[in-house]
Nucleic acid binder design. Structure first.
Lengths: 215, 215
DNA sequence: CCTACCGATCGGTAGG
DNA sequence: CCTACCGATCGGTAGG
Protein backbone atom coordinates (compact mmCIF):
# COMPACT_ATOMS: atom_id res chain seq x y z
CA UNK A 1 0.00 0.00 0.00
CA UNK A 2 1.01 3.59 -0.66
CA UNK A 3 3.88 3.07 -3.08
CA UNK A 4 6.26 6.00 -3.69
CA UNK A 5 4.53 6.95 -6.97
CA UNK A 6 6.42 10.24 -7.32
CA UNK A 7 8.76 11.27 -4.54
CA UNK A 8 9.54 14.56 -6.23
CA UNK A 9 5.86 15.53 -6.12
CA UNK A 10 5.63 14.44 -2.49
CA UNK A 11 8.61 16.66 -1.57
CA UNK A 12 7.03 19.61 -3.38
CA UNK A 13 3.74 18.95 -1.60
CA UNK A 14 5.22 18.88 1.90
CA UNK A 15 7.59 21.78 1.17
CA UNK A 16 4.65 23.89 0.02
CA UNK A 17 2.71 23.09 3.17
CA UNK A 18 5.66 23.78 5.48
CA UNK A 19 6.90 26.94 3.72
CA UNK A 20 3.35 28.28 3.85
CA UNK A 21 2.87 27.61 7.56
CA UNK A 22 6.38 28.06 9.00
CA UNK A 23 8.06 30.20 6.35
CA UNK A 24 11.21 29.49 4.37
CA UNK A 25 13.63 30.28 7.21
CA UNK A 26 11.43 28.46 9.70
CA UNK A 27 11.47 25.23 7.69
CA UNK A 28 14.54 22.98 7.66
CA UNK A 29 15.28 20.47 4.90
CA UNK A 30 15.28 17.96 7.75
CA UNK A 31 11.66 18.83 8.54
CA UNK A 32 10.62 18.41 4.92
CA UNK A 33 12.44 15.07 4.68
CA UNK A 34 10.74 13.93 7.89
CA UNK A 35 7.30 14.85 6.56
CA UNK A 36 7.94 12.88 3.37
CA UNK A 37 9.48 9.94 5.24
CA UNK A 38 12.99 10.07 3.77
CA UNK A 39 16.41 11.42 4.84
CA UNK A 40 17.73 14.91 4.37
CA UNK A 41 20.32 14.14 1.62
CA UNK A 42 17.57 12.43 -0.39
CA UNK A 43 15.69 15.71 -0.58
CA UNK A 44 18.90 17.32 -1.84
CA UNK A 45 19.21 14.62 -4.48
CA UNK A 46 15.90 15.74 -6.03
CA UNK A 47 16.41 19.48 -5.46
CA UNK A 48 20.07 20.51 -5.51
CA UNK A 49 19.60 23.20 -2.85
CA UNK A 50 16.99 24.55 -0.47
CA UNK A 51 16.77 27.69 -2.59
CA UNK A 52 16.07 25.66 -5.75
CA UNK A 53 13.34 23.73 -3.93
CA UNK A 54 11.91 27.06 -2.88
CA UNK A 55 11.91 28.26 -6.50
CA UNK A 56 10.23 25.04 -7.60
CA UNK A 57 7.46 25.48 -5.01
CA UNK A 58 6.82 29.05 -6.18
CA UNK A 59 6.98 28.09 -9.84
CA UNK A 60 4.36 25.43 -9.30
CA UNK A 61 1.93 27.86 -7.68
CA UNK A 62 2.49 30.51 -10.34
CA UNK A 63 2.20 28.07 -13.24
CA UNK A 64 -1.14 26.81 -11.89
CA UNK A 65 -2.19 30.44 -11.72
CA UNK A 66 -1.21 30.81 -15.35
CA UNK A 67 -3.24 27.76 -16.28
CA UNK A 68 -6.42 29.30 -14.92
CA UNK A 69 -6.35 33.03 -15.56
CA UNK A 70 -5.66 33.48 -19.30
CA UNK A 71 -8.58 31.25 -20.27
CA UNK A 72 -10.96 33.26 -18.13
CA UNK A 73 -9.80 36.53 -19.66
CA UNK A 74 -10.31 35.18 -23.17
CA UNK A 75 -13.60 33.39 -22.56
CA UNK A 76 -15.40 36.09 -20.57
CA UNK A 77 -17.33 38.80 -22.30
CA UNK A 78 -16.20 42.30 -21.54
CA UNK A 79 -19.35 42.83 -19.49
CA UNK A 80 -18.68 40.03 -17.02
CA UNK A 81 -14.90 40.00 -17.15
CA UNK A 82 -14.21 41.62 -13.81
CA UNK A 83 -16.67 39.42 -11.94
CA UNK A 84 -15.31 36.30 -13.60
CA UNK A 85 -11.72 37.16 -12.79
CA UNK A 86 -12.60 37.94 -9.18
CA UNK A 87 -14.45 34.64 -8.87
CA UNK A 88 -11.54 32.76 -10.45
CA UNK A 89 -8.99 34.37 -8.14
CA UNK A 90 -11.13 33.66 -5.07
CA UNK A 91 -11.65 30.03 -6.11
CA UNK A 92 -7.96 29.60 -6.87
CA UNK A 93 -6.87 30.63 -3.39
CA UNK A 94 -9.75 29.06 -1.47
CA UNK A 95 -9.03 25.75 -3.20
CA UNK A 96 -5.69 25.76 -1.35
CA UNK A 97 -5.13 28.59 1.16
CA UNK A 98 -1.45 27.62 1.33
CA UNK A 99 -1.09 29.36 -2.03
CA UNK A 100 -2.24 32.61 -0.45
CA UNK A 101 -0.01 32.20 2.61
CA UNK A 102 2.97 31.33 0.44
CA UNK A 103 2.60 34.39 -1.80
CA UNK A 104 1.95 36.69 1.15
CA UNK A 105 5.12 35.43 2.85
CA UNK A 106 7.10 35.94 -0.33
CA UNK A 107 5.97 39.55 -0.56
CA UNK A 108 7.06 40.12 3.04
CA UNK A 109 10.33 38.17 2.79
CA UNK A 110 11.55 39.18 -0.68
CA UNK A 111 9.66 42.33 -1.66
CA UNK A 112 11.88 43.25 -4.61
CA UNK A 113 11.92 39.80 -6.14
CA UNK A 114 8.15 39.58 -5.74
CA UNK A 115 7.69 43.01 -7.32
CA UNK A 116 9.28 41.58 -10.44
CA UNK A 117 7.08 38.50 -10.33
CA UNK A 118 3.98 40.65 -9.84
CA UNK A 119 4.96 42.67 -12.90
CA UNK A 120 5.17 39.46 -14.89
CA UNK A 121 2.24 37.44 -13.59
CA UNK A 122 -0.23 40.03 -12.35
CA UNK A 123 0.22 43.24 -14.30
CA UNK A 124 -0.98 41.84 -17.67
CA UNK A 125 -4.44 40.97 -16.47
CA UNK A 126 -4.68 43.92 -14.08
CA UNK A 127 -4.20 45.99 -17.21
CA UNK A 128 -7.00 44.18 -19.03
CA UNK A 129 -9.38 44.45 -16.09
CA UNK A 130 -8.46 48.10 -15.42
CA UNK A 131 -9.10 48.97 -19.06
CA UNK A 132 -12.51 47.36 -18.90
CA UNK A 133 -13.33 49.22 -15.67
CA UNK A 134 -12.20 52.45 -17.30
CA UNK A 135 -14.63 51.94 -20.18
CA UNK A 136 -17.41 50.94 -17.77
CA UNK A 137 -16.75 54.16 -15.88
CA UNK A 138 -17.29 56.25 -19.01
CA UNK A 139 -20.62 54.52 -19.45
CA UNK A 140 -21.38 55.22 -15.75
CA UNK A 141 -21.72 51.52 -15.04
CA UNK A 142 -19.20 51.76 -12.22
CA UNK A 143 -18.57 54.52 -9.72
CA UNK A 144 -17.16 57.83 -10.86
CA UNK A 145 -14.69 58.01 -7.96
CA UNK A 146 -13.18 54.56 -8.58
CA UNK A 147 -9.49 54.29 -9.52
CA UNK A 148 -9.44 51.22 -11.80
CA UNK A 149 -5.83 50.08 -11.31
CA UNK A 150 -5.82 50.81 -7.60
CA UNK A 151 -9.20 49.14 -7.20
CA UNK A 152 -8.10 45.96 -8.99
CA UNK A 153 -4.93 45.73 -6.89
CA UNK A 154 -6.90 46.34 -3.70
CA UNK A 155 -9.36 43.57 -4.48
CA UNK A 156 -6.53 41.17 -5.28
CA UNK A 157 -4.67 42.13 -2.10
CA UNK A 158 -7.85 41.78 -0.05
CA UNK A 159 -8.58 38.30 -1.43
CA UNK A 160 -5.06 36.92 -1.02
CA UNK A 161 -4.52 38.38 2.47
CA UNK A 162 -8.03 37.62 3.62
CA UNK A 163 -7.88 33.96 2.65
CA UNK A 164 -4.36 33.65 4.08
CA UNK A 165 -5.37 34.81 7.56
CA UNK A 166 -9.11 34.18 7.84
CA UNK A 167 -8.62 31.24 10.19
CA UNK A 168 -6.94 33.41 12.82
CA UNK A 169 -9.47 36.20 12.47
CA UNK A 170 -12.50 33.96 12.89
CA UNK A 171 -12.13 33.87 16.67
CA UNK A 172 -13.60 37.36 16.80
CA UNK A 173 -17.00 36.26 15.56
CA UNK A 174 -19.69 35.46 18.10
CA UNK A 175 -20.53 32.49 15.90
CA UNK A 176 -19.68 28.97 16.98
CA UNK A 177 -20.24 26.22 14.39
CA UNK A 178 -16.54 26.42 13.50
CA UNK A 179 -16.66 26.78 9.72
CA UNK A 180 -19.46 29.33 9.78
CA UNK A 181 -17.45 32.43 10.66
CA UNK A 182 -14.85 31.55 8.03
CA UNK A 183 -17.60 31.63 5.41
CA UNK A 184 -19.11 34.84 6.76
CA UNK A 185 -15.75 36.58 6.47
CA UNK A 186 -15.21 35.49 2.85
CA UNK A 187 -18.78 36.28 1.80
CA UNK A 188 -18.47 39.79 3.27
CA UNK A 189 -15.12 40.25 1.49
CA UNK A 190 -16.83 39.59 -1.85
CA UNK A 191 -19.72 41.86 -0.92
CA UNK A 192 -17.30 44.70 -0.09
CA UNK A 193 -15.51 44.28 -3.43
CA UNK A 194 -18.77 44.37 -5.40
CA UNK A 195 -20.58 47.05 -3.42
CA UNK A 196 -17.66 49.46 -3.82
CA UNK A 197 -17.65 48.87 -7.57
CA UNK A 198 -21.19 49.66 -8.68
CA UNK A 199 -22.92 53.01 -8.29
CA UNK A 200 -26.13 51.27 -7.23
CA UNK A 201 -27.12 48.58 -4.71
CA UNK A 202 -26.62 45.05 -6.03
CA UNK A 203 -27.98 41.80 -4.69
CA UNK A 204 -25.72 39.52 -6.68
CA UNK A 205 -25.25 35.82 -5.99
CA UNK A 206 -22.88 36.25 -3.08
CA UNK A 207 -21.26 33.33 -1.39
CA UNK A 208 -21.18 31.02 -4.38
CA UNK A 209 -17.63 30.11 -3.46
CA UNK A 210 -18.78 28.70 -0.20
CA UNK A 211 -20.94 25.94 -1.58
CA UNK A 212 -18.30 23.18 -1.29
CA UNK A 213 -18.22 23.67 2.48
CA UNK A 214 -21.95 23.65 2.94
CA UNK A 215 -22.42 20.34 1.19
CA UNK B 1 27.30 63.19 19.64
CA UNK B 2 24.74 60.38 19.72
CA UNK B 3 25.32 59.03 23.20
CA UNK B 4 23.80 55.62 24.06
CA UNK B 5 20.80 57.23 25.79
CA UNK B 6 18.85 53.96 26.09
CA UNK B 7 20.37 50.83 24.61
CA UNK B 8 17.31 48.80 25.52
CA UNK B 9 15.14 51.06 23.35
CA UNK B 10 17.69 50.86 20.52
CA UNK B 11 17.62 47.05 20.63
CA UNK B 12 13.81 47.07 20.54
CA UNK B 13 13.88 49.51 17.63
CA UNK B 14 16.26 47.45 15.48
CA UNK B 15 14.61 44.16 16.46
CA UNK B 16 11.21 45.54 15.39
CA UNK B 17 12.62 46.64 12.05
CA UNK B 18 14.40 43.34 11.41
CA UNK B 19 11.59 41.05 12.62
CA UNK B 20 9.20 43.01 10.39
CA UNK B 21 11.35 42.74 7.27
CA UNK B 22 13.12 39.37 7.69
CA UNK B 23 10.81 37.58 10.11
CA UNK B 24 11.64 36.08 13.50
CA UNK B 25 13.38 32.98 12.13
CA UNK B 26 15.15 35.04 9.48
CA UNK B 27 16.68 37.40 12.06
CA UNK B 28 19.63 36.32 14.22
CA UNK B 29 20.51 37.94 17.53
CA UNK B 30 23.86 38.60 15.87
CA UNK B 31 22.13 40.70 13.18
CA UNK B 32 20.24 42.73 15.79
CA UNK B 33 23.44 43.29 17.80
CA UNK B 34 25.22 44.38 14.61
CA UNK B 35 22.48 46.89 13.77
CA UNK B 36 22.70 48.39 17.26
CA UNK B 37 26.48 48.36 17.27
CA UNK B 38 27.07 45.98 20.17
CA UNK B 39 27.94 42.27 20.59
CA UNK B 40 25.52 39.37 20.70
CA UNK B 41 25.81 38.57 24.43
CA UNK B 42 25.04 42.21 25.22
CA UNK B 43 21.66 41.84 23.55
CA UNK B 44 21.07 38.78 25.74
CA UNK B 45 21.98 40.81 28.82
CA UNK B 46 19.04 43.14 28.16
CA UNK B 47 16.62 40.46 26.92
CA UNK B 48 17.26 37.05 28.49
CA UNK B 49 16.30 35.14 25.32
CA UNK B 50 15.39 35.76 21.70
CA UNK B 51 11.83 34.70 22.50
CA UNK B 52 11.57 37.27 25.31
CA UNK B 53 12.87 39.99 22.99
CA UNK B 54 10.24 38.91 20.51
CA UNK B 55 7.53 39.21 23.16
CA UNK B 56 8.82 42.66 24.13
CA UNK B 57 8.64 43.83 20.49
CA UNK B 58 5.04 42.62 20.17
CA UNK B 59 4.05 44.03 23.55
CA UNK B 60 5.36 47.44 22.55
CA UNK B 61 3.30 47.49 19.33
CA UNK B 62 0.16 46.28 21.07
CA UNK B 63 0.51 48.67 24.00
CA UNK B 64 0.84 51.62 21.59
CA UNK B 65 -2.32 50.34 19.93
CA UNK B 66 -4.00 50.35 23.33
CA UNK B 67 -2.87 53.92 23.93
CA UNK B 68 -4.67 55.14 20.82
CA UNK B 69 -7.86 53.13 20.37
CA UNK B 70 -9.75 53.36 23.67
CA UNK B 71 -9.67 57.18 23.65
CA UNK B 72 -11.11 57.28 20.15
CA UNK B 73 -13.94 54.93 21.09
CA UNK B 74 -14.84 57.06 24.11
CA UNK B 75 -14.44 60.46 22.50
CA UNK B 76 -16.27 59.80 19.22
CA UNK B 77 -19.96 60.23 18.97
CA UNK B 78 -21.88 57.15 17.95
CA UNK B 79 -22.53 58.74 14.57
CA UNK B 80 -18.87 59.11 13.59
CA UNK B 81 -17.41 56.23 15.56
CA UNK B 82 -16.76 53.88 12.70
CA UNK B 83 -15.10 56.54 10.55
CA UNK B 84 -12.96 57.71 13.45
CA UNK B 85 -11.82 54.20 14.30
CA UNK B 86 -10.99 53.44 10.66
CA UNK B 87 -9.00 56.66 10.39
CA UNK B 88 -7.18 55.94 13.64
CA UNK B 89 -6.29 52.40 12.55
CA UNK B 90 -5.06 53.62 9.17
CA UNK B 91 -2.96 56.37 10.75
CA UNK B 92 -1.55 53.97 13.32
CA UNK B 93 -0.20 51.57 10.69
CA UNK B 94 0.83 54.19 8.11
CA UNK B 95 2.82 55.97 10.81
CA UNK B 96 5.04 52.87 10.90
CA UNK B 97 4.31 50.14 8.35
CA UNK B 98 6.59 47.78 10.29
CA UNK B 99 3.73 47.45 12.76
CA UNK B 100 1.53 46.05 9.99
CA UNK B 101 4.25 43.71 8.69
CA UNK B 102 5.03 42.50 12.19
CA UNK B 103 1.40 41.67 13.01
CA UNK B 104 0.82 40.04 9.62
CA UNK B 105 3.88 37.83 10.13
CA UNK B 106 2.72 36.89 13.60
CA UNK B 107 -0.65 35.76 12.24
CA UNK B 108 1.11 33.61 9.64
CA UNK B 109 3.80 32.24 12.00
CA UNK B 110 1.78 31.68 15.18
CA UNK B 111 -1.88 31.62 14.20
CA UNK B 112 -3.17 30.17 17.47
CA UNK B 113 -1.22 32.53 19.70
CA UNK B 114 -2.35 35.47 17.58
CA UNK B 115 -5.98 34.31 17.71
CA UNK B 116 -5.75 34.74 21.46
CA UNK B 117 -4.19 38.19 21.14
CA UNK B 118 -6.84 39.22 18.62
CA UNK B 119 -9.53 38.14 21.08
CA UNK B 120 -7.94 40.36 23.70
CA UNK B 121 -6.88 43.43 21.74
CA UNK B 122 -9.27 43.53 18.78
CA UNK B 123 -12.53 41.90 19.76
CA UNK B 124 -13.57 44.52 22.33
CA UNK B 125 -13.69 47.39 19.87
CA UNK B 126 -14.88 45.24 16.96
CA UNK B 127 -17.85 44.54 19.25
CA UNK B 128 -18.45 48.24 19.86
CA UNK B 129 -18.16 49.12 16.18
CA UNK B 130 -20.29 46.16 15.08
CA UNK B 131 -23.01 47.15 17.55
CA UNK B 132 -23.02 50.69 16.17
CA UNK B 133 -23.21 49.37 12.60
CA UNK B 134 -26.08 47.11 13.62
CA UNK B 135 -28.05 50.07 14.94
CA UNK B 136 -27.20 52.13 11.86
CA UNK B 137 -28.51 49.26 9.76
CA UNK B 138 -31.86 49.34 11.51
CA UNK B 139 -32.07 53.05 10.73
CA UNK B 140 -31.11 52.24 7.10
CA UNK B 141 -28.01 54.40 7.32
CA UNK B 142 -25.80 51.54 6.18
CA UNK B 143 -26.47 48.79 3.66
CA UNK B 144 -29.04 46.13 4.40
CA UNK B 145 -26.78 43.31 3.17
CA UNK B 146 -23.80 44.27 5.36
CA UNK B 147 -22.60 41.82 8.02
CA UNK B 148 -21.31 44.16 10.76
CA UNK B 149 -18.77 41.88 12.46
CA UNK B 150 -17.50 40.43 9.19
CA UNK B 151 -17.34 43.90 7.65
CA UNK B 152 -15.31 45.34 10.54
CA UNK B 153 -12.86 42.44 10.42
CA UNK B 154 -12.53 42.75 6.64
CA UNK B 155 -11.75 46.45 6.83
CA UNK B 156 -9.17 45.83 9.54
CA UNK B 157 -7.61 42.98 7.57
CA UNK B 158 -7.59 45.08 4.41
CA UNK B 159 -5.86 48.01 6.13
CA UNK B 160 -3.20 45.94 7.91
CA UNK B 161 -2.40 43.75 4.90
CA UNK B 162 -2.63 46.59 2.41
CA UNK B 163 -0.21 48.82 4.29
CA UNK B 164 2.14 45.88 4.93
CA UNK B 165 2.54 45.04 1.25
CA UNK B 166 1.68 48.23 -0.67
CA UNK B 167 5.32 48.86 -1.56
CA UNK B 168 5.58 45.61 -3.50
CA UNK B 169 2.24 46.08 -5.22
CA UNK B 170 2.97 49.60 -6.45
CA UNK B 171 5.06 48.34 -9.38
CA UNK B 172 1.83 47.47 -11.15
CA UNK B 173 0.73 51.08 -11.50
CA UNK B 174 1.53 52.96 -14.69
CA UNK B 175 2.42 55.89 -12.46
CA UNK B 176 5.99 56.98 -12.01
CA UNK B 177 6.60 59.65 -9.37
CA UNK B 178 7.50 56.89 -6.91
CA UNK B 179 5.36 57.80 -3.91
CA UNK B 180 2.29 58.50 -6.00
CA UNK B 181 1.11 54.94 -6.63
CA UNK B 182 1.54 54.14 -2.94
CA UNK B 183 -0.90 56.93 -2.13
CA UNK B 184 -3.33 55.90 -4.85
CA UNK B 185 -3.50 52.38 -3.44
CA UNK B 186 -4.20 53.58 0.12
CA UNK B 187 -6.75 56.19 -1.00
CA UNK B 188 -8.62 53.54 -3.00
CA UNK B 189 -8.53 51.18 -0.03
CA UNK B 190 -10.32 53.78 2.09
CA UNK B 191 -12.78 54.49 -0.73
CA UNK B 192 -13.61 50.76 -1.00
CA UNK B 193 -14.22 50.53 2.75
CA UNK B 194 -16.55 53.55 2.74
CA UNK B 195 -18.37 52.87 -0.51
CA UNK B 196 -19.28 49.35 0.61
CA UNK B 197 -20.66 50.70 3.88
CA UNK B 198 -23.22 53.30 2.84
CA UNK B 199 -26.33 52.63 0.79
CA UNK B 200 -25.73 55.82 -1.23
CA UNK B 201 -22.79 57.42 -3.04
CA UNK B 202 -20.53 59.42 -0.73
CA UNK B 203 -17.90 61.96 -1.62
CA UNK B 204 -16.21 62.01 1.76
CA UNK B 205 -12.84 63.58 2.41
CA UNK B 206 -10.79 60.74 1.02
CA UNK B 207 -7.06 60.65 1.21
CA UNK B 208 -6.71 62.72 4.32
CA UNK B 209 -4.11 60.25 5.56
CA UNK B 210 -1.92 61.10 2.62
CA UNK B 211 -1.35 64.73 3.47
CA UNK B 212 2.02 64.18 5.20
CA UNK B 213 3.45 62.84 1.93
CA UNK B 214 2.10 65.58 -0.28
CA UNK B 215 3.08 68.59 1.77
C1' DC C 1 17.93 6.63 -1.82
C1' DC C 2 21.25 5.86 2.30
C1' DT C 3 25.26 6.63 6.12
C1' DA C 4 28.75 9.49 7.51
C1' DC C 5 30.55 13.70 7.76
C1' DC C 6 31.80 18.92 6.78
C1' DG C 7 32.25 23.99 8.20
C1' DA C 8 29.27 27.67 9.54
C1' DT C 9 26.02 29.61 12.28
C1' DC C 10 22.51 29.33 15.59
C1' DG C 11 20.77 30.63 20.61
C1' DG C 12 22.68 30.84 24.86
C1' DT C 13 26.27 30.67 29.07
C1' DA C 14 30.53 31.59 32.00
C1' DG C 15 33.05 34.80 33.85
C1' DG C 16 34.76 39.08 34.20
C1' DC D 1 28.95 45.71 28.18
C1' DC D 2 32.90 42.40 26.58
C1' DT D 3 35.78 37.84 25.19
C1' DA D 4 35.65 33.12 24.97
C1' DC D 5 33.24 29.22 24.52
C1' DC D 6 29.22 25.55 24.57
C1' DG D 7 26.20 21.91 22.21
C1' DA D 8 22.81 21.74 18.63
C1' DT D 9 21.33 22.38 14.25
C1' DC D 10 21.81 24.37 9.85
C1' DG D 11 22.56 23.61 4.49
C1' DG D 12 25.26 20.87 1.87
C1' DT D 13 28.89 17.06 0.19
C1' DA D 14 31.32 12.45 -0.41
C1' DG D 15 30.79 8.15 -1.59
C1' DG D 16 28.39 4.26 -2.27
Amino acid sequence: MERPIDIRARILEEATRLFASQGFDGTSIQAIAGAVGIRKPSVLYHFASKELLHQAVLDEVLSRWNEVLPDILLVSSEESRFERVMDAVTSFFMEDPDRARLLLREILDRPEEMSRRISTFVRPWIDVVAEQLERAKRRSRVRESLDPEAYAMNVLSMIVSGIAIVESLSVVFRDDPSRKSHDRFVAEMIRVARASLYPHEVSADLGKHLEPHDG
